[in-house]
């Protein structure tokens, strides 16, 4: 019965429960992180497993690289515009979906679909929708008389060229990313809204508070911690994601109109073979994301305390 005795010790049980997580974190997060750091201060290439330490040259080169600066700005635009839209649209959808109406389950089901489909497949679908020749969006606009003839609102060209014009390409990338993130954000916000005690809302209604007064003075403050978590998840997903950008534009239109840090790191390290430069770019995520996480968690904690 010695084994049974061992498993009855709380400290041992706790250790055993935590061990798999620690091993997982060490193997799949700690090790790659350490390797990224070593690569970033080396001259490693993808074609040669041997490398030597070269100091901070890669970081110096990175800051002098116009592509890096553009990608950095694009990453912030891509992240914060996407998240602002996700939070606003997610909140509107959550407000609608906590109400009862016929066919609510099918609306919820449809809303979740983008989250259940593999992102690469969904994005390839959008790639076809935004095709420079066969775009059905453009076809609809032409049929609606908004595009394709002189004097039309969107111009005389037969297509809008969604992925070829810098502003429109960035808007397209953001649109697809919002489509992808919206279901998760909505579900989290529904949970937050359902957690608000009904009596508080009803008391405010009896006191004559209108919708916007209730929204800004009751609902938003009470679900602020939930919004904080949603923002945190969304920032992490968006800041480190390259799937949508790579499939839709590969960082273009040239020179780097939609390039983000994740896709630039891939471009430099895998396409270009400069593993060290790619590692230096990807390491840039760490302090930025750590800073954002610290700020958001601090605000959430403050809100909870209040």
């Amino acid at each position: 019965m010695r084994n049974g005795h061992l498993f009855q010790r709380d400290s041992l049980t706790a250790f055993a429960l935590l061990l798999p997580v620690c091993l997982y974190l060490a193997a799949f997060i700690g090790f790659p992180f350490v390797m990224s750091f070593i690569y970033s201060i080396s001259n490693a290439t993808i074609g040669d497993p041997h490398y030597s330490i070269t100091g901070l040259n890669n970081f110096r080169d990175m800051f002098h690289d116009a592509a890096f600066r553009t990608s950095l700005a694009n990453t912030f635009i891509f992240t914060f515009v996407s998240i602002a839209l996700v939070i606003v649209l997610g909140h509107i959808l959550a407000e609608l979906l906590i109400r009862d109406f016929p066919g609510k389950w099918i609306v919820r089901f449809l809303l979740m679909l983008p989250w259940t489909a593999p992102i690469a497949l969904g994005t390839i679908g959008f790639l076809w929708f935004m095709d420079s020749v066969y775009s059905p969006f453009d076809w609809l606009l032409r049929k609606a008389g908004l595009l394709g003839s002189p004097g039309d609102l969107l111009g005389p060209m037969s297509n809008l060229y969604w992925l070829a014009r810098p502003g429109l390409a960035m808007a397209s990338v953001i649109l697809v990313h919002v489509w992808r993130l919206l279901p998760l954000a909505t579900v989290i916000l529904i949970a937050g809204l359902n957690a608000i005690p009904r009596e508080i809302v009803e008391a405010a209604q009896i006191d004559g508070a209108g919708y916007f007064r209730r929204l800004f003075h009751i609902t938003l403050p009470l679900i602020f911690p939930v919004i904080g978590v949603t923002v945190l998840f969304s920032v992490f997903f968006t800041f480190t994601d390259m799937t949508v950008v790579w499939i839709l534009t590969r960082g273009g239109p040239p020179p780097h109109a939609t390039q983000v840090l994740a896709s630039l790191a891939f471009l430099k390290s895998i396409q270009g073979g400069d593993l060290a430069q790619g590692a230096a770019i990807s390491l840039f995520f760490f302090p930025v994301l750590a800073g954002i996480a610290a700020i958001v968690l601090r605000l959430v904690k403050k809100a909870v305390v209040i």
């Binding site: 095709d131 420079s132 020749v133 066969y134 060209m157 297509n159 060229y161 969604w162 992925l163 070829a164 014009r165 390409a169 534009t249 590969r250 273009g252 239109p253 040239p254």
Partner: peptide
Amino acid sequence: LTPEVFGWTPASNNQLLIAGR
């Protein structure tokens, strides 16, 4: 050319030719 060439993938010129454009 038209602005679409800034957003092309390797398949785009094939598509354009086959589409007769």
